[in-house]
Amino acid sequence: MTAAAPYPIYAAFALGAFALYFLAPRAQRRRAVTTAGWLAAIAAGSVALFASQQAGPHTGILFYCFAVVALLAAVRVITHPRPVYSAVYFVVVVLAVAAILITYEAEFLAVALVIIYAGAILVTYLFVIMLAQQPGAPVYDRRAREPFLAVIAGFLLTGLVAGQVTAQRSGLPPPSKPEARTASTRLPPNPTASGNTAAIGVALMTRYPVALEIGGVLLLISMVGAVALSRKRIPIEGVPPPAPTLGQIGKEVEPF
C-alpha cells in the first residue's frame, strides 16, 4: 500500500463518529435514531475491517472477534444511561482487551490487566456507583452534553491522527523477524522459567527501575490521598471529644 491518504480509515472514523452521535444518550430515545446509530456503527466497523484488510494479512480471526466485542462494549460504556451497566460493559471491554493481548503473546500483561482492572479497579467503581446511587435514572445520565461537538472534537481528531500515522507507515522501522521475536520475548522453556513473565520482569528491573519505583511511590501517594479525601472526623485519643448534646433532652426529647 502506498502512502496515499488512507481514505477508508477516515471514512471509518467519520462513520463511527456519526454512529456515536446517534447513540449518545438523549432526552427522548427514539427507536429509529438508535437503529440508525447501530447501523452506522456496523458500517463503520465494516469499512474499518475492509481498510485493515487492504493493509496486509490480518492478525487472525480471534483478534477481529475480540476487537468487535471490545468496541461494541466500549460504545455501550459511554452511551448506557445507567452507570452500573456502564461499569459492567467496561468489564467486557477489559476482558476483550485481555484476550487481544493474549493473541499478542503478552499473557502476563493480559492477566495483570484482568487482575488489576477487573479485579480491583472496576470493583471499586461498582462500589462507589452503589454507594452514590440515586433512585431511578437521574437527568444527567439520560442527556448527553453537547454530543455533536464532543463527537467532532474527540472522534474525528483521533481518526485524523490515526489515519496520518497509518498513512506514514513507511516512516516506522520495519518489524523484526518472527524468530528474533521469539528469542527476545520468550525464554527457552525449562521447568522453572516463566517465559514472558520473566522477560517483562527483567525489563522492568534492569531498564526501568526508576519508573518502577516512581510507580510504587505514586501508588503510595494515591493511597494516602484517597484515605485523606474520604476520612471522617474521628475523635483523637487524648483530645476530649465534643461535649455530648445532652441539653437537648427536655427541649426536643421528652424527659422520662
Partner: peptide
C-alpha cells in the same frame, strides 16, 4: 504487517473514551 488493525482498535477505543469523557455528565 499486522500493526494497522491493532492501531485502529487502539485509536477507536481512545476516541470512544474521549467522546465519553466529553459527552457524559455523570462523574463516575
Amino acid at each position: 504487517d499486522s500493526l494497522l488493525p491493532s492501531l485502529m482498535l487502539g485509536a477507536a477505543l481512545f476516541g470512544l473514551g474521549v467522546v465519553g469523557f466529553l459527552v457524559r455528565r455523570n462523574l463516575i
